[in-house]
Computed example of a mutant assay.
Amino acid sequence: MSEILLELQSLTTGYRDVPVVRNANMTFRNGQIAAVIGSNGAGKSTAIKAAAGLLRVWSGKVFVSGVDVTHEAPHKRLSRGMAYVPQGRIVMPEMTVRENLDIGAYILGGRKDVVQENMERMIQTFPILGQRLNQLAGTMSGGEQQMLAIARALMTNPSAIILDEPSLGLSPKLVNQVFDKLQELATTGLTIIMVEQKASRALAIADVGYVMHTGQVVYSGDARELLENPNVQRLFLGEVPEEIDHMLAVADEDE
């Protein structure tokens, strides 16, 4: 079994004095795709923001490769290989694609040779970005902006990329493109952790899944088993078994 890369132990956090996540335990291993799903307000985004260092942990621990990073700042966790892509395709709209990628590499300390090497790798991984290097990011489509947001996070050669709702606001065709790209990235050994409202689609490509409800992890384990679990289907997925069978078939064809 692969090594544990990121671990949340009995994590409790929230906003101001309102607890949103309570006693959550999650383990993410090297090279896995992990899906964190649940209804609106379940605490999914809050949990991964705490994992990325964007929210203070009230109690519990966060470990990266066995090191306690509970009180480390986000940039410190980034230097440990934890890249974060926020919800909403946040790019610098008045900057070009090239400039957005350059910003993503700031933590490399101005090492131009490494930045150029990483940019060339991103162009190979996301060919559309290579065609748009001098285009303003704000003029691109939603799917292209999401690809740019992911590529910018990858400019630091992270061990894991944490994505908050990568399919938000995208058309079904663009959702498929983004999910296909995430599967492709996973084949390189990158750990992918995603919070996703399109729960069935996420579980269909994931290795492991965590189902959250009212701030707690209520189901966890093999993603396919969760996808086929009648309780998870009824309470959290909203699809009938025939639709889920189709999603599994499509995911198998993509592999």
Rank of each mutant, 00 (worst) to 15 (best):
K181M: 14
E225A: 11
R111W: 05
R121Q: 14
W58G: 03
L8N: 08
V97T: 14
G143D: 03
A51E: 03
S200M: 12
S2L: 11
Q145F: 00
G38W: 00
E117G: 15
L133K: 09
V175H: 05
A137I: 02
K198F: 09
L136I: 09
G189C: 04
L154T: 01
G238L: 07
T214R: 14
Q145N: 02
V69K: 12
V114C: 03
V62N: 06
Q216S: 12
T188A: 07
A35Q: 02
V114R: 01
V250Y: 09
L163W: 00
V21P: 02
N229D: 15
A160R: 05
K198W: 04
S141A: 12
D245E: 15
V114S: 01
G81M: 02
L5W: 09
A83L: 03
N176L: 11
G66A: 09
Y210W: 04
I4W: 09
E99K: 06
Y106S: 11
Q183G: 15
T27L: 13
K198G: 06
G109W: 02
V62K: 05
S159C: 08
T46Y: 01
Q116F: 13
T27D: 09
F179D: 10
G209Q: 07
Y15C: 06
G38F: 01
E253W: 10
P158E: 02
N23E: 15
Q131D: 15
I205P: 03
R234V: 06
S10N: 13
A151E: 02
S141V: 10
V91C: 04
P86W: 00
D252L: 14
G14Y: 06
M140G: 07
L101S: 03
G189K: 04
G53H: 08
R80Q: 12
G60E: 06
R80N: 07
A153T: 00
N134F: 11
N40R: 12
D222H: 10
L11S: 08
A149L: 00
L101V: 05
T188H: 09
T125Q: 14
G41I: 08
A51W: 03
L148R: 00
G142D: 05
N25P: 06
M155P: 05
E184S: 13
S220H: 15
N118C: 08
L101A: 04
I128H: 07
Y84M: 00
E196Q: 09
G143V: 04
I205V: 12
G66M: 12
A204E: 11
T46P: 01
I128Q: 11
A52I: 08
R29W: 02
G189T: 07
L248I: 15
A204I: 07
E184K: 14
L182W: 05
